[in-house]
Design a protein around this nucleic acid. Structure first.
Lengths: 320, 320
DNA sequence: GTACCGTATGAAACCAGTTTCAGAGCAAGG
DNA sequence: CCTTGCTCTGAAACTGGTTTCATACGGTAC
């Protein structure tokens, strides 16, 4: 591999001059610039970016921590991140954790070791204090509703969004209402659960713990969810489901079993995926790509710690 | 930031010894090892991985070129790659190209600049000779059926898989058969088209160019596909659709319009996604995760150029 | 005439590690 | 007693860039 020294030698200049040409610095005479460019061409030179990274102390690499890649919710966020990151000359390294602590730490270690300039945490399993420990090594952006003063965050007001969903279902006359979550322990789930409890209490409706379902991520989980629902003696008449994929799984399975939505059970989803449109699922549309975009923008300004909240939209279709 | 020199000083040893401890080399006396470890702990030291990359000449970073992240077909491949890559201590950098040449070149340039140890190309737009130019900088693995002797590849026998699909549809008694593709120009599409032409000719069936549809990737494309099909005067009675997502979009839209599958039009998909199971779509199951796994294995052995082909399975359900 | 400034250039320090090489100490084998 | 070989250690070279600093040159202002 040819290096900058050989180029300098070939072109009859110093390495500083070659570096200046490579970085488009001014103060290089046209003829020297030309001879450097020729040398680069002749010797088929290409820069070793690791040396640049070492020297500059940054890599233009942005880590993303997500539980699943193959999921519309996170897919949309990642898409938003990627677009904005490309716009500022950054590349993306994806850490698919499946909520394994170890994987998350791996990503954080790469930040510590300076392989990453920053990290966007879309969903986490580690405690907040663990993240804070790594914060000295570079900006960490959270895609969750947090009051953590030390880390910037971008989130949807899940409390308000869920409340909106629930109020809509209640307004439609349903009284026996259940809901599903992803992981019970996540921040988003906490907020949704709180919203559920608050609103149900406000309307003096029964909050049956049997009607809280967990582990809803993918289409297949919708199949399971339906089976759980179907096996209940005392069934809720409406379910607010974490995401449209699971909702779709539920509805399609229900249809197979001759159970009608919304006649036998009403369903409200989240995310406004293309599937929900096709299946006429009422849903809460979340600006997921925007989350990604904003996360990158927060990363760009590490000196300002901000907490941004984004809005949601209720989309009324036929499943409620 | 503390560096290896400070550690050496603090521990009263040379940098070589520190390096040995860090890399678990033998030939370090227990007491020196201990004092180095203590120094590392006291000074809260962490290695700068960029220096390591520079020094070692590799990064343990593997690039993946894919058109879309948010797609079951590529999602499954990426998943397979990620799993296997993690097993060999590699991380993944995803390049979502949307079939833009520039993005592809970006990835290849990172290989050239030694930021990546290798690249797995899941689907490409650049000509083969472009790829070959970059091959000197590191292993490039193709996930496509190629005869290119210089690059390793892992692929499904799309010709055989499509033939199998078509023979099945024909055996079911359909004569007016159409099919959809992603990009006409891709290698996979070429093979599927060839299979279609060959088999149709063999059975002396009409090959109507109006019945070739393009641009089938996502659920939404299935909506469009249905509309195209529906607007035809002379409609095919069966369509073999590139992937289950598009097939699902087609079927769900058809159902909305009161058109029945398979009575009014038979559908056969590819990939055996969870959606196809729910919707009872007959499909060809492809070992996508295995493609990812094998691709990484081929990357590990750059000295051996191999062309691996994987098998497929016809899954009979109700849509044909 | 000289003080000052912008342009142009290269030497050398710097980023933070790994690796090679030479040599010291010590035990076993002949 | 001498050779051989293994364990341990550190100096120095090496990876390949960027950046600072000193300096030289030419033109302009006073």
């Amino acid at each position: 591999m040819t290096n900058i020294k050989e180029i300098a030698q070939f072109a009859g200049v110093s390495v500083s001059t070659v570096s200046r040409v490579l970085n488009n610095h001014p103060y290089v005479s046209p003829d020297k610039r030309e001879s450097v460019l020729q040398a680069i061409d002749r010797l088929n030179y290409s820069r070793n970016i690791n040396a640049i990274h070492l020297s500059k102390g940054k890599t233009n690499l942005l880590g993303i921590i997500i539980p699943f890649t193959n999921h519309p919710y996170y897919g949309a966020i990642v898409h938003g991140i990627t677009k904005q990151a490309n716009a500022i000359g950054c590349h993306i390294v994806i850490f698919e954790t499946h909520y394994e602590r170890e994987k998350e730490i791996q990503a954080l270690n790469m930040l510590q070791m300076k392989q990453l300039d920053g990290i966007i945490v879309c969903s986490r399993i580690s405690e907040m204090k663990v993240l804070l420990n790594y914060q000295t090594y570079g900006p960490i952006i959270l895609c969750e509703d947090t009051a953590q003063a030390e880390l910037s965050s971008i989130s949807i007001d899940h409390y308000a969004a869920f409340s909106c969903a629930l109020e809509y279902v209640i307004a439609k006359g349903y009284k026996k209402i259940g809901y599903s979550l992803g992981r019970k322990k996540s921040r988003n789930s906490f907020l949704r659960a709180k919203a559920f409890n608050d609103i149900m209490k406000k309307h003096q409706l029964i909050n049956n713990p049997e009607w809280l379902f967990e582990g809803s991520y993918h289409i297949k989980d919708g199949v399971t969810l339906f089976q759980e629902w179907n096996s209940l003696q005392n069934k809720p008449e409406a379910i607010i489901i974490t995401n449209d994929d699971t909702a779709a799984g539920f509805i399609l399975t229900a249809n197979k079993c001759g159970i009608k939505v919304p006649e036998d059970v009403a369903i409200l989803g989240f995310n406004n995926d293309s599937l929900s449109e096709l299946l006429d699922i009422s849903t809460i549309s979340l600006p997921l790509e925007w989350i990604g975009k904003m996360a990158v923008e927060l990363f760009e300004k590490p000196e300002v710690i901000k907490h941004v909240k984004l809005d949601y939209t209720l989309i009324k279709r036929k499943s409620v």
